[in-house]
């Protein structure tokens, strides 16, 4: 019995660790992509410093990119489900 509960504890800790690492990887990728795309969108011609207009653009762009990510994710999931239903 006690070996069963040890097994369960180890299992839960592995699951937790995997979930944490996958969330971290996801957040890291999202940050990288936001960085690339919002830099391109907001700072077409880098000056000697970031202007207040560029800073505002970056914060708006960050939120907008996340909204875009959500649209893509839900469209993609819907499409996958639809295609699985067709098989």
């Amino acid at each position: 019995m006690s070996s069963d509960s040890t097994s369960e504890t180890v299992k839960q800790s592995i699951i937790k660790q995997v979930l944490i690492e996958s969330q971290q990887a996801n957040a890291r990728t999202l940050m990288e992509k936001i960085g690339e795309n919002c830099f391109a969108s907001c700072v077409p011609k880098p000056g000697s410093s970031l202007s207040s207009r560029e800073k505002t653009c970056v914060t708006q762009c960050t939120e907008k990119y996340m909204a875009a990510w959500n649209v893509v994710n839900s469209t993609y999931l819907r499409r996958i489900q639809q295609e699985m239903g067709n098989q």
Binding site: S41, C42, C57, E63, K64, A68
Partner: peptide, 11 residues
Amino acid sequence: CITSNIKTNQL
């Protein structure tokens, strides 16, 4: 798709 200047935080 996002080709114009960003003016809001929404699509």
